[in-house]
Design a protein around this nucleic acid. Structure first.
Length: 311
DNA sequence: TTCGCATGAGAAA
DNA sequence: TTCTCCTGCGAAT
């Protein structure tokens, strides 16, 4: 589930409910026991997302770096504050996974100012399944399961990890400079642009859905070598990525269609099959021209495109 | 009940 | 390029 927008939402949620508080860190599963001991009891300063990676900074300077991979997820229990758009109250962030925590979150959300009443009787909950890391305050428990990366870094190591990533429009200080970096990195290579957009060292946070949809919105053939894509077209891709990412962070949904009015958008938010133009629609008619959507492998991932609209 | 796939990416070959 | 990590879910059995 996690493309960049998901990780940004997780960072905001963890900052809201963990930052400024001492956190009990454990590894119920055991595979993160040493790291948990190092972090246990420290105050969390903040959580940040860069691309698909999450960085949780503790008061000592230690940084917990997490990558969810294909099926990692955070389950939150107890107090789960609404994100600024009011539709957060998410009990599970990452791969699809819900149930108890979500309901608790929603109940919390419906009781403004009643934080001290909202802690359920079975709190903290018994860890379910293989919980790699549990971050627990008196009011909130965040369980991490199935991550592809989970490690403690010192500040220097954390900076190295960030520097390995390309720009992220939701994390960049200087958007124009970031845009120029992406333009340079894409137009310097002979690799297909569809592959470069997925390269986290070129631009961070784009996954298979956003890749397919950004290229469709740009009417650009994914197989075009990066160096043959005009700089202004790459710049426009970056600008559109910034728009889609901000929208995804706000709504928690990858709604990437361009052909919807307000009513259509509302319906698509509730219907996962109505959110995309080409992604996940092999053989179905292009929403613009009716040509069946193509699916083919690109660097071992599925690439979706409309051969008529994208050339 | 079992199987295969998925919004990822590093390691191995 | 292929394998592997390790999880949930829907389709197939």
């Amino acid at each position: 589930m996690p493309e960049g927008h998901t990780v940004h939402r997780i960072a905001r949620q963890l900052t809201l409910d963990l930052a400024g508080r001492p956190v009990a860190v454990s590894s119920p599963q055991g595979r993160f026991a040493a790291g948990a001991r190092r972090l246990d009891g420290q105050v969390v300063l903040r959580a940040d997302a860069v691309g698909k990676q999450l960085f949780v900074t503790f008061a000592s300077g230690d940084v917990l770096r997490v990558h969810l991979g294909l099926y990692g997820a955070w389950d939150l229990y107890g107090r789960v504050s609404p994100l600024t758009d009011g539709r957060a109250a998410v009990g599970s962030l990452g791969a699809p996974r819900l149930r108890r925590a979500v309901r608790l979150g929603e109940r919390e959300q419906s009781l403004p100012g009643a934080a001290d009443e909202g802690v359920p009787e079975d709190f903290p909950p018994t860890p379910v399944g293989a919980v790699r890391v549990r971050l627990a305050t008196a009011e909130t428990v965040a369980d991490l399961r199935g991550p592809s990366a989970c490690e403690v870094l010192d500040p220097v190591q954390a900076q190295v990890a960030v520097d390995r990533l390309g720009p992220d429009p939701a994390a960049a200080d200087d958007l124009d400079a970031a845009r120029a970096v992406v333009v340079r990195r894409v137009t310097a290579r002979g690799v297909p642009v569809g592959q470069l957009l997925m390269d986290q060292a070129v631009v961070a946070g784009i996954g298979n859905i956003y890749r397919a949809e950004l290229l469709f919105r740009a009417r650009l053939d994914p197989w075009t070598p990066g160096r043959r894509v005009p700089a202004e077209v790459v710049g426009a891709l970056w600008d559109d990525w910034a728009v889609l990412l901000a929208d995804g962070i706000r709504t928690g949904v990858t709604l990437t269609r361009e052909d919807l009015d307000a009513t259509g958008r509302e319906q698509a938010l509730a219907d996962p099959t109505a959110r995309h133009s080409v992604y996940g629609r092999p053989g179905q008619p292009c929403r613009v021209c009716g040509t069946p959507v193509l699916v083919e492998p690109m660097a071992a991932r599925k690439l979706y495109r409309c051969a008529t609209c994208q050339r």
